[in-house]
Design a protein around this nucleic acid. Structure first.
Lengths: 225, 225
DNA sequence: AACAAAACCTGATAATTATCATATTTTTTT
DNA sequence: AAAAAAATATGATAATTATCAGGTTTTGTT
């Protein structure tokens, strides 16, 4: 079992504010878990009772709308914490977390996090900053959802994925999502997402190879109307 | 000039966590301002350099989309703080704040808030909880925007206004918004908002008197498809 | 009270997006 | 390797929403 005080992942999230003795304590009570692609990490409405620190892999946070469709609200990546929102509000999860690819996560029990939050002002300030940043991003997503076309939102999503996940040696996006995922990110029907991706291909903005997508003209994608 | 330590408004926000001596200090450096309906409190992109505590009135937080339309992201009411998000992230405002009706606000300089945040763990935890709650609301708005029809969103907005602002002696909503505001809350064209409000009238879900709206059948509004 | 400006309203039409149907391809399972 | 299941694709059509154009009503100002 790896040790928190030697783990570099914490540099990417609020846990970086903790001192060595706190990290040693966390190491003692944390559990490490491997999660398979497609596996549910937690579901909307359940009490998570802790926080996950994502060591490897990506998961999607989504919510089931009353029309029966899932809306993906956020992608959580290596280095992110998962479940802090519910923990801080002390309530059941508002979103469902599902692994997009194989993951490795550490689970830190609620009690430990609460202890650090209420004794370490650097930690709680870091958490506060993270939450403020997330809120800004969420506000911007609201504006996009409300004001931009499906085509624009899908183009933006592709640009976002390139900027945040990068590309492999062959230029393909370093993350593979299904067309259904794309639809659930931009909030449209699966067929519509498929159609627009096909259009982007025809227009030479992207090329694809199965689920893999390569962005060919990012400037044009950014300018999509 | 009123005194923070005697002001009941702070019970409604994170300032309730402050002790008397801190409140006395705040009293000394805060400024009280009257803001007229329609007046801009701060604009997207400017550094606010402090936090507003809303003593009276309502303001809308909106963002200009690239298509030239404003999207209203949130209504800020009596008792709420305004500007905390930008302050915590230490960056320019992401949203524009405009008074929906006449307001009274107190402005507390950034330095003072930061001081309290970094020394008073109860205060920073309260702020963290508020931010977590806001993030949850924002996530839910994203889902609604992405998955519900304009008609559903408008119905939901009316229900929300009734629940959060109540009604006057004659049963009219205790907040008056323009049709343009409604359009900018649900993210649609002004004409579309007007049309749907007219439909709701025809269907007997609401009645109106100028800008004043009375909700007649809230159960049916909740069930709008 | 008269005027101007802003807000509201409605019809006609166009554009966008969803839905349904069906076929093909890819992936997973046996 | 074959079969089954899931994902992708595309056409036809319907539903939703935006846009433009022209009104009327309300509000604010002089």
């Amino acid at each position: 079992m790896s040790k928190c005080e030697q783990c570099i992942i914490r540099q990417f999230n609020a846990l970086k504010a903790l001192q060595k003795d706190d990290l040693v304590r966390l190491s003692g009570c944390k559990t490490t878990r491997t999660i398979k692609k497609g596996e549910v990490i937690f579901e909307e409405g359940v009490h998570v009772n802790g926080v996950f620190c994502v060591k490897e892999g990506v998961c999607k946070l989504s919510k089931l709308s009353s029309n029966g469709k899932d809306q993906i609200v956020k992608l959580v990546v290596r280095g992110d914490l998962l479940g802090q929102r519910s923990l801080i509000s002390d309530e059941a999860a508002n979103l469902t977390a599902v692994a997009v690819n194989d993951m490795q996560v550490c689970f830190i029990p609620k009690h430990e996090i609460i202890h650090d939050l209420s004794t370490n002002i650097n930690f709680s300030m870091d958490m506060l900053k993270d939450m403020a940043d997330e809120l800004k991003l969420a506000d911007n997503v609201i504006v996009d959802m409300a004001q931009k076309s499906v085509r624009q939102r899908l183009a933006e999503t592709l640009v976002y994925l390139k900027n945040n996940f990068g590309e492999d040696a062959n230029g393909f996006l370093n993350i593979m999502l299904t067309r259904d995922d794309y639809a659930n990110i931009v909030g449209t029907a699966t067929e519509s997402a498929i159609r627009i991706i096909s259009q982007f291909k025809k227009e030479g903005l992207i090329t694809t190879e199965g689920k893999k997508i390569k962005i060919e003209k990012i400037e044009d994608l950014i300018r999509v109307e």
